[in-house]
């Protein structure tokens, strides 16, 4: 192969121009456009659970089921309360009969008798949809039936959902379920119909112990936002990278 100096220079200049050209395809955004592109919503809903205050009465689960028309006796629920009993041998006993709908009244955990002297620690833990910033359930929907609103809540379009169940499997927190009446996927919406009217979610109102709180992360004066920012909070399954927006005070390492 031979290459004259002229050809070499020609090729080099041409190649450089060709590689620089695509940069021209990038558009310079005005600051308004840039802000709109990253969602300029004034609201970002989040939730704070003070696990140290929960006593396992299950009023939140009952209120949620009534408020959101989830069949009361079906074994599905948008929020639930788990009981953890850690015994001195290091074993973790967990149960949540009917999602804790009727409260925890029986000292037996999952039908298993546990000697009170054997208990090292025990606690109740409410769970609900984490309204993740990177929701894996939305990514897997093949039809565009589930999505994230500008204020951060993940919703399901009941008229659009085909009930394939991919999202139910994709959620690492197991908050999605198949609604036996609408025959679609269903999950906690932070009571979207209530929070957008200035009310609190039904479970927050029903909690007599202030264990459940709703926050707007974009409002620095929100008292619950202040608590999330200043207190020692943790999220569930941080390692999945889903960026959950339900924060817990008093979360134990034995929680699954």
């Amino acid at each position: 192969m031979s290459c004259s100096r002229r050809d070499f220079l020609k090729e080099a200049v041409g190649g450089t121009l060709a590689s620089v050209l695509p940069i021209g395809a990038y558009v310079m955004l005005s600051s308004e456009e840039a802000r709109a592109a990253v969602a300029n919503a004034k609201v970002r809903w989040a939730f704070l659970v003070d696990a140290t205050k929960c006593i396992g009465c299950g009023m939140c689960v009952k209120a949620c089921k009534n408020e959101n028309e989830i069949p009361y006796d079906a074994p599905v629920t948008r929020t639930w309360v788990e009981r953890y009993v850690v015994t001195k041998d290091g074993e973790v006993h967990v149960d949540s009969p009917m999602g804790g709908r009727d409260g925890f009244t029986d000292p037996k955990v999952g039908g298993e008798e546990i000697d009170p002297d054997d208990i090292e620690k025990a606690y109740f833990l409410p769970k609900l949809c984490n309204q993740c910033s990177n929701p894996p359930c939305v990514q897997v929907c093949p039809v565009g039936a589930t999505f994230q609103t500008d204020d951060g809540v993940v919703l399901i379009d009941r008229t659009w959902c085909i009930g394939c169940g991919y999202c139910i499997m994709a959620c690492p927190y197991g908050v999605r379920f198949f609604h036996p009446v609408t025959k679609t996927a269903d999950k906690c919406t932070f009571c979207y119909h209530r929070i957008t009217k200035g009310l609190k979610p039904a479970c927050v109102d029903a909690c007599a112990f202030d264990a459940r709180m709703i926050a707007n992360l974009k409002d620095p004066d929100d008292p619950v936002t202040k608590r999330i920012l200043t207190e020692r909070v943790a999220v569930l399954k941080d390692e999945y990278g889903t960026k959950p927006n339900v924060f817990y005070i008093g979360l134990d390492a034995s929680v699954r």
Binding site: F147, T149, D157, R158, T159, T189, H193
Partner: peptide, 26 residues
């Protein structure tokens, strides 16, 4: 929404959810 990944949906559904009836009055 802000992206195809999380914002590919029917816009009217947001209003549908807002119209869901409130049961607990407080």
């Amino acid at each position: 929404g802000s992206s195809f990944t999380y914002g590919f949906y029917r816009l009217g559904d947001i209003q549908d959810w807002k119209n869901f009836p409130v049961k607990y009055e407080g």
